[in-house]
Design a protein around this nucleic acid. Sequence first.
RNA 1: GUGUCUGUAGCUCAGUUGGUUAGAGCACGAGGUUGUGAUCCUCGGGGUCGCGGGUUCGAGUCCCGUCAGACACCCCA
Length: 478
Amino acid sequence: MSTVIQPPNGTRDLYPIEAARRRFITEAWRRVSICHGFEEIDGPTFEHLDLYTVKSGEGIVSELFSFRRAGGEKDFALRPEFTPTMARMYAARAKSLPSPTKWFSCGPYFRAERPQRGRLREFLQWNCDVIGGESDQMLREADADVVAACVGLLAALGLNPTTARVKINNRQSMAVRLRAGGVPDARLPEAFGLLDQREKLDAREWMARAQAFGFSADLLAYFDPGRREVIRLDSDGGAVSPGEGLEPEYVELQRSPGSLWHALEERGLASWCEFDNRIVRGLAYYTGMVFEVIVDGERAVAGGGRYDNLIELFGGPPTPAVGFGMGDVVLSLVLQDKGLMPADEELVEFAGLRPDVFVISNGTPEANAMLGPVVALLRRGAGPFPAGSPRPPSEEPRPWAQVHPTPPGSAALHVRRSYKATKKIGKLLQEAAEVRARLAVILESPTEATIKDMRTGTQDQSRTPIDRLGDEVRRRLA
RNA sequence: GUGUCUGUAGCUCAGUUGGUUAGAGCACGAGGUUGUGAUCCUCGGGGUCGCGGGUUCGAGUCCCGUCAGACACCCCA
């Protein structure tokens, strides 16, 4: 009796085309972050449970998958985020790392929450962080650099300043305002938590809570849920002089050299970005700039900010840092919403899944016998050595060294054959077309084959000797 | 942890006031044309109607429970 075991709630089975969609996203992440000067790192997918409770308290435990080995005494947890691991890794080598250090990672994360649209229990997340920096000027540059990487990804996938908005705020500026309104430093985190609730609660209820918290009349007026304060950075709205109304957020956003706004503008990001006083972010550890990428109809696509105390918290030297995370779940939904996810055929092309050659026998026993050997020959590679005489491994112990800058194994061809019982050439060519093979090779005899270019539909009039097949195939693919 | 909705073939779905052996399209597989990607034709594999109980002469259909999924709360690193 067999039992069907379903995948756990909130996980995904990825069949080939779905795996290709995922690669489309992860490769964009890698390409963009490398172009922006970040280096890829990764860490364990599970950590000591303490790593997470240190930062977030015991309350976090119910939100993550934790376990203890049978008979063991230590508690572990599947990583729900990368920041603690990253901070741990940075702290371990802080003294020998450059300042600033720019790291990125893309990997799976796990959270034990009820899944819903845009939120699963296992997902991928792209993290970019800039750790360190000596001057205020460098920190503003770092802030702008992470926003730039984030926007670079959005642009690379076809989003634009109309479909995706980067909403930026600053906790420091908010703190200035809160203090001026009588909120003591010790209660600032609580106040940020309250402000983060503003969009979720009914306006009246939120006002009641804000009053209960002790907000002054000024604060209540400024943070009134009905009052949006949004300033596009590419408009003149932000050009308020510091003397006027003394809005600390505006000071931060001045065009003056050294301001975040200036740094964003220098990077050509002004059209994507806007100041929005509603952006707070739920996390307690943000200390400066915070930002989110918003696409209408979905949850935040990405979010991050400056966290200058966190490296210290994980045992490193006091080090400023800024970063963001972007999950694959919401991003995928957004790409689908906007029609930006490539069609299946394009994905096959993109992911390199398109076969170079589809080998067909003409059905005679002699040709059938050649099918396996020819497939194997082409898979070993059609060059740079003469086809039909692949070099023995001993002659080239480092095969990748000769073909730089192409990656290892690139000389080999992607070759397929049919496993169907039919001998009909038409059916077999149909299969070749279905898998989007570039070329079809029809074996005619033990020594000859006909090449058909499936992309153009043209077929050779003359036959190609099998000992030249590799070269001929390679020539046509070039 | 709470609530709402949905479960019929691999997929998308029909299935009459409860009535004989539960259907279609697509997909998949085999075949038809003297060896060329389309269209077409024939055949085939497949379902304990999510699972369990109840009402009934009779349940895919009605009732209860349960499981799974989706969505929304809580939370959001």
